[in-house]
Design a protein around this nucleic acid. Structure first.
Lengths: 243, 243
DNA sequence: AAGTGGTCTAGACCACCAG
DNA sequence: TGGTGGTCTAGACCACTTT
């Protein structure tokens, strides 16, 4: 089962696995191109491509004449990464919990059929849950899923694995659509987020595609009082924005 | 003045200039690697790197055995591009106008000094303007600029050139920070945007760096009723999100 | 002086697609 | 069969930093 993966991709994986596992922490020097050439028996151009692409991807810093290092804050190039909120909270040192509010199969309304690009009426999976950080509600997740793409979705226990984590593992995402707006929360949403009257919310809507079909359509609602979306990144050498 | 630019970067520029100028439109075949080798006298690896990076940047599509083509919709990988609102409105076929509200030099408050990473008190340029599309206000721009980095800023006529357009041309941006939140607009902001009572706003805050110094800190305020931020993009081959 | 990254070359082999 | 992109090599020269 020798992988058909190209050599430079295997080198990238090797480095990323060390970083993800925590073996190589921020600021640590990673092997030089010549060291990779020695250890893996590849040409220097191949080692160079691996490290160069990881740098463009935001994971490494390279300093000519000095070396290559694990970047301090992994670059967050998009305002919205497809991340698991449980991981985000854990990264901040908080304790995540999720509370189920709705878990059902529901027939498509015309609006839902349009969102899922379905020509015929069908059934969709629907869940609503509230994510909490240290007991404080921080996000409402209102999600529809196409069961033709992710059949086992409704059978999961979403207090143990978040819908995002399940879908990320179950379905390869090929395309993403995001939009963000400010909304006045409904009474029910205010209650779930334990918000004061009059406070606005940030609504993030996302659709994802796999194999040309819409996998899921989700609305994430955050209390507006603190910024829910943040990114910081460098621009690439040629002046276009790095992505 | 032979440019110190590497060959692959010059090839990228050459292709991008043709695309930007409209010579090569969406779907058009661009020169193959071998054609670039012939015309520019470079090795195939160099031509390959140029076209490969432009593909990763979202501008081209490559099909093995067939060719390389200008991508239909230039990929909008980040939710927030550093774009000029006048261009955005023009791209939608609308008519842009800007109205000056404030144009002044102002001493730094402690909060501003922190934002600009200044150790000593100093003066900053400050402008507030309202951008309109077909006569309808669509954005408040509240911007501070470090005059040590962009000296001529306040001398511009911002009803003719937007602050973004001027700064993009005047200062190379190397790093960007964005955050988004939902806010309840002040009475003054409601007035400027001609909004109803109770409607929330989307606030986008951005800082940009050049040469290690903060160039500008800007807050863009949008009426929340329609989504101000949108993106759609594909994920890259190796499974990580394209940026 | 030795090591680093940055670039470039001139070949090569492969899978794929077209005529 | 010839052209395309995808990858890889084994060298090379350079500017730079560290020792």
């Amino acid at each position: 089962m020798s992988s058909a993966q190209p050599l430079y991709a295997r080198l990238k994986d090797h480095v990323m696995n060390r970083i993800r596992a925590g073996d190589w922490k921020a600021g640590r020097r990673v092997p030089s191109e010549n060291e990779l050439v020695q250890r893996f028996g590849v040409s220097r151009m191949t080692a160079n491509r691996a490290l160069r692409e990881l740098t463009a991807d935001g994971y490494l810093d390279r300093v000519p004449g000095v070396g290559t290092f694990v970047r301090a804050r992994a670059q967050q190039s998009s305002l919205i990464e497809l991340r698991n909120i449980a991981d985000e909270i854990a990264a901040r040192g908080g304790k995540h919990a999720a509370r189920m509010v709705v878990k059902e199969k529901t027939p498509t309304t015309p609006a839902l059929a349009r969102q899922f690009e379905l020509s015929k009426p069908s059934k969709l999976d629907h869940v609503v849950l509230v994510h909490e950080e240290n007991g404080v509600p921080v996000q409402i997740e209102d999600r529809y899923v196409n069961p033709a793409v992710a059949p086992d979705f409704l059978r999961q226990n979403f207090t143990k694995i978040t819908p995002t984590a399940f879908l990320l593992a179950a379905v390869p995402v090929e395309e993403l659509e995001h939009s963000v707006s400010a909304i006045q929360p409904s009474r029910e949403q205010r209650r779930l987020l334990k918000m004061q009257d009059g406070e606005p919310c940030l609504a993030l809507h996302r659709r994802s595609w796999s194999g040309g079909r819409v996998v899921t359509s989700v609305t994430l609602i955050y209390p507006g009082r603190r910024s829910a979306l943040y990114s910081r990144y460098r621009t690439s050498a040629n002046g276009t924005l790095s992505h």
